[in-house]
Every structure is written in structure tokens, then in C-alpha cells.
Design a protein around this nucleic acid. Sequence first.
RNA 1: UCGGGUAUCGUCUAACGGUAGGACGCCAGAUUCUGAUUCUGGUUGUCGAGGUUCGAAUCCUUGUACCCGAGCCA
Length: 562
Amino acid sequence: MQIDDSEASTHFIQHIIEEDLKTGKYDGRVHTRFPPEPNGYLHIGHAKSICLNFGLASQYSGKCNLRFDDTNPSKEEEEYVKAIMEDVRWLGFDWEDRLYYSSENFDQLYEYAVRLIEKGKAYVDELSPEQIREYRGTLTEPGRDSPHRDRPMEENLGLFKRMRAGEFAEGEMVLRAKIDMASGNLNLRDPVLYRVLKATHHRTGDKWCIYPMYDFTHGQSDSLERITHSICTLEFEDHRPLYDWFLEELGIYRPQQIEFARLNLNYTILSKRKLLQLVAEGHVNGWNDPRMPTLSGMRRRGYPPEAIRDFCERIGVAKSNSTIDFALLEHCVREDLNRTSPRVMAVIRPLKVVIENYPEDQVEELIAENNPQDPSGGSRKIPFSRVLYIERDDFMEDPPKKFFRLAPGREVRLKHAYIIKCERVVKDENTGEVVELRCTYDPETKSGSSQEGRKVKGTLHWLSVAHAQRAEVRLYNHLFLKENPADEKECPDLKSSLNPDSLETIGNGFVEPYLKDAVGRFQFLRLGYFCVDSEDSSPGAPVFNRTVTLRDTWAKITKKSG
RNA sequence: UCGGGUAUCGUCUAACGGUAGGACGCCAGAUUCUGAUUCUGGUUGUCGAGGUUCGAAUCCUUGUACCCGAGCCA
């Protein structure tokens, strides 16, 4: 493929890296990392970071590590570690032999803490959490020094050792850096370095009862891994001076931290806390519910990893907060699926059609191409017979002028088959509901024959009733009604902003017999892209998830006019 | 109010003192045995006010708006 200049625009992080490469700042090395905390599942926002970090490494012939920032044993679990690794791999990235855990650095971090104490740059404080908060001051007023701030170094050392030995309860003692209680940057007001946490760690077990804070771990972990460009989100901008202070005081290798704006997407939320809430309160069926913006949810929904990578490429990288239109993600998904997925026919809201002039017992095998976008995709046979299903939406008894589909007296083509004409409408005597259409077909109009045959306005998908395979079909819509459910002011209550129609289950849909035991992704002609559900399908009883609808001009017209 | 950031089409994002460009969306049309795809064409933008300059989205002054920050969370 040709890359023209307009597409090849570089973002500010690439500018920085290219400048560093030019000046030899890191000896021409580019080494990044993706550092998730294993306390939840990865979502599309993480995908942006993953693509950025792994993408940069590959673009500049560098490396990218996977590192779990696991400094809080009370929130982290092995289940998340596994899920995260699976998601990163599925997205298409490989950390090779560079899998790390911050917890592997606990010994080194402890030693760093001792070093700071010995330099007189850290002290053990016995203020309560509440007192520490009071002493910290406010955004506009300076804080006050802790009464324990000037403890002798030897005493600090002894106390810190006793913390490690388990002599103090949680909340009783902490180790703090001695920086500046009057700093405008609250992160520098003697931040806590170590706290007592009598919890079992998913990796280190019960070896430790004190754990380093993230702030005392992240920068040093980057340093130990010889990271060159430590890419993180905007909220850590204020922490950079602190990380640099640690690195400086410890006299160790210094990576360059660069902050970028995290992804926001409309009609969904990308907050781990709130996603956890959706799962915990049962508003969705687990982390991989196809409505979830998690990578596992999108995988189950049928989003190809290529599409997600393309999306991450297109949204760009910048420092200004922004919200991406969900339509862009869907565009990327459709673009990939249009190229790659076989076309098949399914009828999800059936209406019976009887072809009156078609022989009772006749069955014809018609040829259907699998993918018009892919000539090498081949074709398959589909059975045609006297009694068919078409989509209820494709018939109107009293249609508006722009309706191209079937109506009394009108003709349409059945895809891959014949032109039919609606002769009569059969209704339920009591309800007046249309229950059946009596039609005739024109044998001269078979697909593939006489090319210059009559033109009709519409082409419908259909299924032979006798051959149709029953299937469950799940139609998904936005999980939230509001465009910005993340806004606490607009949506103080998550529950009430949920879209009650986010999942519509069609228990008795029908698909081609071809799909009885299918796996993978398909385009249901004129309906959308669907995939076989990985969990609930069973042999002979397929379940399909709608990945995304097709663009639908007719739906737009009907919506506009009423 | 203190510290740190950010402002370019409806939404994202380029342009690094020299023609404001691309993508998505939207609108119109062509083609189509998917109202899909594809293809054409169109729409709309530099936060405000001053200044420097032959020339400003870009530099300066000033204002405004928005985001982040007071966890022993990450």
C-alpha cells in the first residue's frame, strides 16, 4: 500500500522521539512499556495506550515491555493478570521475554527507601491518615510540617525496619519523603512512600507487610527497565516532578516521561471503577459482555483487532482532552468486516411468502457468491423453494413513495434468486396482522441468466422455510442513552442512564443451513455484521451477536420523516 | 483562589512565520441483484481583544473557557 504524505502525519510524541534520536539522548534507543494495574479488565482506552507504546517501539526499531504495576495487593488479582495478557496478545502485540511486575522490585525499592532515609530525605511519620490530610493544607494554602519530620536518621531507620517487621498496624506508621510542605504541587508535600498493608500479594504472598506507593514505584521501575520514553496519561503530569526528584536523589537512570490525553468515547464509559460497578451490580453479563467497551467485550462482540488498531491509529495522540465519536470506531469495524466477512442470509423477523406458481415439491440449489469484495472467496449453494421467509420490514401494505421494497402489486428481486410480485396479502382475521404474502415469481429472471432482465427497485434477502436453521440473534445498541455518561453532573446515577434497549434478543431468528455449525464473522445481507457467540453457541444451536449494523440510508429517511 | 495543563470544521487531528489540509459525520449525485460497498462533488474551523511582521493558527501582551491536582488508590 502506498502511504501518501497527508496520512503520514506525526504526533507530538513522535516529534520528541525523533528529536531524541537526532541528539542521541538515549544512544538511539527507544524502549517503552505498557504498565497496567491488574485490578480490572482492559478497555478500548487501554488499547490506545497499548497501540501507542508497542507501535512506537516497532516504528523506531525499539522494544516495549509489559509490566504489571502491582503495588496494591488489596485490589489486584491473578485473574486480571491473565485477562490482560490475553487481551494484549489478541490485539496483536508481543512483549517477547519482557514481562515484568513492579512487585519484582520490592527488594530494590526497599533499599531505595533506606537510601533516602540515610540521606535525610525520608522520615517515618506516625500521624494518622486524617492528620496527614490536615497537615497537607489545601490547594490554595500551604501545608504544615509534621511534628515527626525532623526525627534523627537512625531513629527513622529503626522505625522503618520495625514497620517491615510487622510491628505496626495498618495506618499507624508511614514512610514519607521530606520535600516541601509549602509546594504548590501537592505531590511534593512530603508524599507517603510506604504504608503498612497486611494483605497477601498475588505474587509475593506474605513476604511483605509494607508496600511502596505507586508514586514511589512507577518511576523507579521505568528506570530499572531502562525505559527511554515513559508514556502516561495527563493526570500524571503533576507527578513528574516527584518522579524526577526520586531519580535525582537516588542518582539512578532517568527516563523521559511524556503525558498524552486519554481516550474518551461517547455513549460509553471508560472508567475501571464504573465498569467494575456495571459488572458487580449485574447491569451487564460480566466483563466480556458484548456491550462493554472492554477488549474482551469487543472481541466477543466481533470487533476485529485490526479494526481496533486502525481506530487507535486514526484518533491521533495529543494533549488536549477530547471525546471521539463512537461512529468512528464503527466505521473502522465496518471497513475491516466489509473486506473480510462472507455474506450470508438471515431473517430475524420473518414474514411468510408463498410463491403460488412455484411447484410444491421443487427445491432448487442457487449459487451465491460469498463475498463480492473478494473474488477468491468462492460461492456456495442455497436452497430455494415455494415457501419462504422475508423480513417483515421489507413489506408495507401502504408504502410511502420512497419505499423500494415489497408491497401489494409490486415487484422486487430476491437476492441470488428470482423477481417476485406480491399478489395478495393474507391477514389474521381477528388482529388484522399480516401473516402471509401470496406472490408469483418470474422463472425468466433467475440470477445469472438474462442479464438485461427487468430492473426492479429493491432486492431482498430471504430464506427457504423448509431449510432454514433456527438461531438466536442478539442485537446490541449503545449501553447508555446519554452521549456523555461519564459526566457526573449530567449522569450522577449510572443505573438510570443505561439504555434499556441495549440488548434485544431474538430467540427465533433464522439463518441459512450453511450456518448451522459455523464459527466466525459474517455479514447478514442487508442486516449487519454478526459473529457466532463464543460462549453460548452449541452444535446445531448457533447464537449470533450483532457486531455492528450496516450503514442504513433507509433508516435515516424514515427517521427524518417521522 | 494556589500549582500543572489545554484551546483549529459538528467530532477528532495536521500545519512549527508563507495557499488552514486529512479523517469521521452530515448533505447531494453516479453506479449497484445488499437502500451495503465503491465513486464523485459539497458543507463547516484557527477562543476573545490588542500588538510585532510584507505576511500570524503559529511570536508578544492581555483576557476568557475547559481539564487535572488536597488517597496510607493507580
